[in-house]
């Protein structure tokens, strides 16, 4: 009898669970699984192949995430792992898990609004303050400290906050 740990399904699960612990270097409360960046883990001839997808075309965190996955797998005894970047289908904020959205909010970042509908050219958005929950907020800058964030301010509690851009 083959123990589950050594079956491909067992290996795959173990590799997935390991890769899923890697966090986004810019938002360390979110794992790449929460984000939906971790796309697939496969076992081919005993080798682990991980597929990840970028959030934004130029996201500089991808190289670091790749390295972190390789190191995490190596610590668990996996050798010759391969991390591939896939582009299709394109990542959207809709892939972010509910758990991920909650963690973002608790961390002080307003999570992306669900269903990334196209906005009008001069459209108005409603984003709730992650600190006090008020909807009385305003955008300070469409571009924030990383590609995936915009800078907002709450007019109720006066705190500035990051908003994870709906994309």
């Amino acid at each position: 009898m083959v123990s589950t740990v050594f079956s491909d399904a067992g290996l795959r699960q173990h590799a997935w669970d390991t890769a899923a612990t890697v966090v986004d270097p810019e938002i360390p409360v979110l794992t790449i699984a929460d984000l939906g960046v971790l796309r697939d883990v496969a076992i081919n001839d005993g080798q682990v192949e991980v597929e990840i997808t970028p959030t934004y075309s130029g996201c500089p965190a991808m190289n670091m995430i790749t390295l972190e996955i390789e190191m995490a797998l190596e610590r668990e005894g996996f050798r010759n792992t391969k991390v591939r970047t896939v582009l299709s289908p394109a990542w959207t904020t809709d892939w972010m898990s509910e758990d991920g959205r909650r963690k973002l909010r608790e961390y002080g970042i307003a999570p992306p609004q669900a269903a990334g509908s196209r906005r009008a050219l001069f459209g108005v958005q409603q984003v709730a303050c992650p600190q006090c929950g008020s909807g009385d907020t305003e955008v300070l800058s469409e571009f924030g400290s990383t590609s995936c964030k915009a800078l907002w301010r709450c007019k109720s509690c006066r705190e500035p906050f990051d908003y994870f851009k709906c994309h």
Binding site: L87, S88, A90, H167
Partner: peptide, 22 residues
């Protein structure tokens, strides 16, 4: 398929850039 995938990412980014410059 590759150009279509690149387009899907670039389109969202261009939309955002257009709003900013407008």
């Amino acid at each position: 398929a590759t150009l279509a995938a690149i387009a899907a990412k670039s389109e969202k980014e261009s939309d955002y850039h257009l709003r900013h410059s407008s």
